[in-house]
């Protein structure tokens, strides 16, 4: 790529990031609604952890349980944002009726999608961080053993695989204007169920455990809990790190390739337009 072409792609990349930021700014009331909902959900999960001792009647490490549930809720919140923003990027363009203008612009599809992912990561980290701050007011969190460096490493590695998964899911609204977004949400709900967001996947039936092993969220959640609750380092968590690296290395390029192929299919079928 020539330096001129690179400069063009960088400007296009910034245009996508800036546009998404403008969206967030303009829809701030909805942002507030989603923030309140996620925050309430996380606090509820924390209280469930706190209440287990009274419910079971046995002495438990309540602080560990609270943090276990909160980590599940906050990390799932982050991964969901990443997945949703990327997966719904085509659906948004269709709702706003701008899809034809964006897809006829001289921008590489990788630039388009990866810039959207970049914004999603920044936004996701900021929102999850804010939720963590709010939630910490409600609970006396013991973070004495936490290894924040490992936690950041897990967050970074898992972001790649979730971005890849989001790009694969973004194909659905591209090829099916009417049903695509609905299927994306079903897929997201199934990820929540199979990935052990609020429990270890060992409690699931064997066949569900096998499916759970294919989800990057399973390893991300396990790795995050190991780094915050037990203070483990990245090499100590290698069994969870390598699947995340592998899934990221596979899902990201495969997602981009799959999207490009399905875009050509959509252009043949005539579904790359404002309305279905």
């Amino acid at each position: 790529m020539s330096s001129q072409a690179l400069a063009r792609e960088l400007r296009a990349s910034w245009a996508f990031i800036e546009r998404n930021f403008n969206f967030t700014k303009r829809y701030w009331k909805w942002e507030l609604v989603f923030f309140a909902y996620t925050m309430a959900n996380s606090v509820t999960m924390g209280f469930i952890g706190k209440g287990i001792e009274a419910f079971s009647g046995t002495k438990l490490d309540t602080s560990y349980l609270i943090l276990y549930m909160l980590l599940g809720s906050i990390l799932w919140g982050y991964l969901s944002i990443l997945f949703e923003i990327v997966a719904e990027t085509v659906a948004w363009e269709r709702w706003e009726e701008t899809i034809e203008y964006t897809f006829m612009a001289p921008v590489r599809r990788a630039t388009h999608l990866l810039s959207t992912c970049g914004y999603a990561i920044l936004y996701g980290i900021l929102r999850s961080g804010l939720i963590l701050v709010v939630v910490s007011v409600f609970f006396d969190l013991d973070l004495g053993r936490a290894n924040f460096l490992s936690a950041a490493g897990i967050l970074a590695v898992s972001s790649f695989s979730f971005v890849g998964l989001g790009i694969v899911a973004a194909v659905l609204p591209l090829i099916s204007p009417e049903k695509g977004v609905q299927v994306v949400h079903i897929f997201q709900a199934l990820l929540l169920m199979f990935s052990g967001v609020y429990y270890e996947i060992d409690v699931l039936p064997v066949w569900m455990q096998q499916v759970g092993k294919l989800s990057p969220a399973t390893y991300a959640l396990r790795g995050m809990r190991a780094s915050i609750l037990e203070g483990r380092t990245m090499p100590e968590m290698w069994n969870d790190v390598w699947p995340l690296i592998l899934l990221g290395a596979l899902l990201l390029p495969l997602g981009l390739m799959f999207f490009k192929r399905m875009e050509a299919w959509a252009k043949k079928r005539g579904v790359l337009k404002r309305s279905g």
Binding site: A7, E9, R11, A12, A15, E18, R19, R26
Partner: peptide, 16 residues
Amino acid sequence: KLSAVENLCFSAGLYG
């Protein structure tokens, strides 16, 4: 929901 300038700057960016 975006302004004319925001929309136009987005388009300009896409064309480098």
